[in-house]
């Protein structure tokens, strides 16, 4: 860079190109994607025992079981809010140490809103469905997975990808959401135990987030 004023006839293309390069560099320096994914992976793995031990299961002698995932309802609202707060604090601290402001606030707000949305939906379902049992078509189950904490993590990550203009994170989030919404089952789901039935998917969700954290850490983006 020089200190000379640019004449009106100077190359506007070069100026615009420099503007874009500088803006891109700042965005890269503001990112802390791997930390966000690591925190979310940690929260996901920590939630597994809460779901396992907090689940209320009532089976009749003829083998029909009713269950209520109370552990999810007790653990996830608080855990999510703490996770989004922790991510915001870590982003702000890291950006500040680099001499920058952070762009994380809309992500944390989205995280809080999705947490409220999930909690309200699950509380409503817990109040309504015990007295109105029914079988759902597949599309309702996909929506159910989206509104669950693991789906809401993906929705909030889409916002983070937009804020950071981070194409790699967008691609990762699309894959993550596909895994969450269309569960992978290679026959390892144990249908003999209601508790065990939900275990593999949570391990996979946490594993994908952990792999993402490792990948973004490796490439620092």
């Amino acid at each position: 860079m020089t200190t000379d004023s640019v004449s009106a006839g100077d190359d506007p293309r070069r100026l615009l190109s420099e503007v874009r390069t500088l803006a891109h560099r700042v965005r890269l320096d503001q990112r802390l994607t791997w930390v966000a994914l690591l925190v979310l992976a940690g929260v996901t793995f920590l939630g597994i025992p809460f779901d396992w031990f907090g689940m209320k299961v009532n089976c009749t002698p003829d083998g029909v079981c009713e269950f209520a995932r109370r552990g999810v309802l007790y653990y996830w609202p608080l855990a999510s809010l703490l996770a989004y707060t922790a991510i915001a604090v870590l982003y702000v601290r890291a950006a500040r140490a680099r001499g920058l402001g952070a762009r994380v606030l809309p992500y944390s707000i989205t995280g809080a809103v999705t947490t409220l949305l999930f909690t309200a939906t699950w509380v409503a379902a817990a109040l309504y469905f015990p007295s109105h049992p029914q079988r759902f078509p597949e599309w309702v189950l996909v929506f159910d997975r989206l509104i669950a904490p693991w789906g809401m993590i993906g929705v909030a990550l889409l916002v983070l990808a937009r804020l950071e203009r981070n194409l790699a994170l967008l691609a990762f989030t699309v894959v993550y959401l596909a895994v969450v919404l269309v569960p992978i089952n290679f026959g390892w789901v144990d249908h003999s135990s209601t508790r065990a039935e939900f275990l593999p998917q949570q391990v996979i969700n946490g594993g994908v987030l952990l792999l993402g954290a490792a990948g973004f850490r490796r490439w620092q983006r």
Binding site: V6, L22, V26, A102
Partner: peptide, 28 residues
């Protein structure tokens, strides 16, 4: 319409808030 000042404005806009040292390093 001056390269350095345009650079300062661009970085500050993108960063929301920027420290003197960061600007000095980026703009050399």
């Amino acid at each position: 319409h001056q390269r350095v000042r345009l650079g300062i404005l661009t970085i500050t806009h993108e960063a929301r808030r920027v420290e003197f040292g960061y600007l000095r390093t980026q703009l050399q």
